[in-house]
């Protein structure tokens, strides 16, 4: 499979009054089309910076990001970004929230609106389209946020600690839900998280970063005997704990 996103020699420094901070150093990552890659690392190691660079929202100090063979130099239409919280606008209906991305990109064409409405129908939110976010459950709000991003038809989804603002039980359910939707839509996904079980339960590969300045410590392909397990089912698989202890030890090794 061809690589859809490559990060080559990414180094990110940022300047603060009390000194220069190197968030990431010489990071190389290649992500194949349709793949789900998780990036885990100790908190504050610069994972989120890396993700922002991949999205074109930050410019690296050196190195480059290529998407579909094109150099990324600014917010990219092929990239969808999901943050910790759903960030739905409380003063807009679900319908108007879902169209926000298209609105910002000046892409409110009849075809795109129809596509967004289709997504609302497919994922069970159409009858809630005139409700306000506060009238929906946490899981439904996440779905709405996902549809808002899907509506602009990105090829790559970047998940920045997504869902981590939810309580544990809701989070497990939402993870299952969003995961299956994104798989069905055939998207490439890159997730940044500090939650090892979450990364194992969703990914094809887990990239372990070191503490700051972050560099790639190791890459773990995650394979289960049965294909296409849902994140919840994966958690029950005997291999799950094996992967967990491997990655856990490596992260621990970082701190020592």
């Amino acid at each position: 499979m061809k690589n859809i996103l490559t990060a080559e020699g990414i180094t990110a420094k940022y300047q603060a009054e009390n000194g220069e901070i190197t968030a990431a150093e010489q990071i190389d990552i290649a992500i194949a089309e349709g793949e789900f890659v998780s990036i885990v690392g100790p908190s504050g190691c610069g994972k989120s910076t890396l993700l922002s660079i991949m999205a074109g929202m930050l410019t690296p100090s050196s190195g480059r990001v290529m998407i579909d063979g094109e150099l990324v130099s600014g917010p990219n239409a092929k990239v969808g970004y999901m943050l910790q919280r759903d960030n739905l606008l409380e003063w807009r209906t679900i319908y108007k929230n879902v169209l926000l991305g298209l609105e910002i990109r000046h892409a409110l064409t009849p075809e795109n609106i129809e596509y967004a409405e289709g997504l609302l129908k497919t994922y069970g939110l159409y009858e809630f389209r005139d409700k306000y976010p506060s009238q929906l459950s946490g899981g439904m709000r996440q779905r709405a946020a996902l549809i808002r991003t899907l509506a602009v038809k990105p090829e790559i989804f970047l998940l920045d600690e997504a869902f981590s603002a939810l309580d544990y039980q809701t989070r497990l359910e939402v993870t299952d839900d969003i995961y299956s939707i994104l798989r069905r839509e055939g998207k490439t996904m890159v997730m940044v998280t500090h939650d090892i079980p979450e990364s194992i339960s969703m990914s094809d590969r887990v990239v372990v970063l070191s503490g700051r300045p972050a560099h790639v410590r190791s890459v773990h392909p995650i394979e289960f005997e049965k294909d296409h397990l849902t994140p919840l089912a994966r958690r029950d698989d005997p291999h799950f704990n094996q992967y967990f202890s491997e990655i856990w030890k490596e992260l621990r090794g970082n701190e020592a």
Binding site: A55, M57, G74, P75, A77, G80, Y81, L83, Q84, R85, N87, L89, W91, L100, G101, E103, I104, R105, V152
Partner: peptide, 29 residues
């Protein structure tokens, strides 16, 4: 204004004027 909302708008490539119109001003009614 909630910086997370601003970041959300920026992930869609919103410029400063759009951020103001769609996020900052309505947040401050």
């Amino acid at each position: 204004t909630d910086p997370e909302l601003l970041k959300m708008a920026q992930t869609f490539g919103a410029n400063r004027r759009q951020v103001f119109q769609k996020i900052v001003f309505p947040s401050n009614i």
